[in-house]
């Protein structure tokens, strides 16, 4: 895990080893609890896909959430600058400036944002920036019993994330969106 944020060029990202996912949804529950996400909306979820023909069926689970894109379209379209990106790549919403126009929800190719029915502003995954800034891991990463999620600094060669990406094959989802997604799915 990256050490406490000293001002170096950090770039946070996440590696996801989806093959290990057992769809227990502990990450979803942990996120809800950690971030007090209202009922009915989610910051992360598991995409389920069934393929094959009976009796040769295969089910795959893909954890999904905001991809903390390198060139986030949500930030580009926001008319007030409420959607913004930190130097370390984390994309956040400043709720005080959000007018609830929902343009960013529409502009996110990964459908990662939601309209918060309680505050009427927009919410999304924050990579648990409040925890990261304390030197902790995001709640979903810490909770996952099968160690599907690896969070870390792309620019830190010693990080597990960096080493995984250096040695394993991976893909990002829909690179053709041009957003530069930063969730790396191991193959």
């Amino acid at each position: 895990m990256a050490t406490k944020s000293v001002k170096t060029a950090q770039r946070y990202a996440m590696v996801i080893d989806a093959k290990k996912c057992i769809n227990c949804k502990a990450c979803v529950v942990a996120c809800k609890a950690e971030n007090q996400v209202p009922l009915g909306v989610f910051r992360n979820w598991i995409d389920e896909e069934t393929s094959g023909e009976y009796p040769h069926l295969r089910m795959s689970f893909d954890p999904e959430q905001c991809h903390h894109c390198a060139d986030p379209s949500c930030v580009r379209v926001c008319p007030t600058g409420a959607s913004w990106q930190r130097e370390d790549g984390i994309v956040l919403v400043n709720e005080d400036d959000c007018i609830g126009c929902k343009y960013c929800i529409i502009a996110c190719p990964y459908d990662a944002r939601y309209h918060n029915p309680e505050t009427h502003t927009v919410g999304k995954c924050t990579f648990c920036s409040h925890r990261v800034d304390r030197g902790e891991l995001p709640a979903c990463v810490e909770t996952c019993p099968s160690k599907v999620r690896v969070f870390g600094d792309l620019n830190d060669p010693k990080s597990q994330l960096h080493q995984l990406l250096a040695t394993r094959r991976y893909e990002v989802k829909n690179p053709q969106t041009g957003n530069g997604p930063q969730l790396y799915y191991l193959l």
């Binding site: 580009r76 008319p79 007030t80 409420a82 400036d97 959000c98 007018i99 609830g100």
Partner: peptide, 19 residues
Amino acid sequence: GKPMRFWKIFFHFRWRSPM
């Protein structure tokens, strides 16, 4: 979602945002 905040659009000029 927050109609009373609409003025914020005019206090943050974001030239890359069509809105």
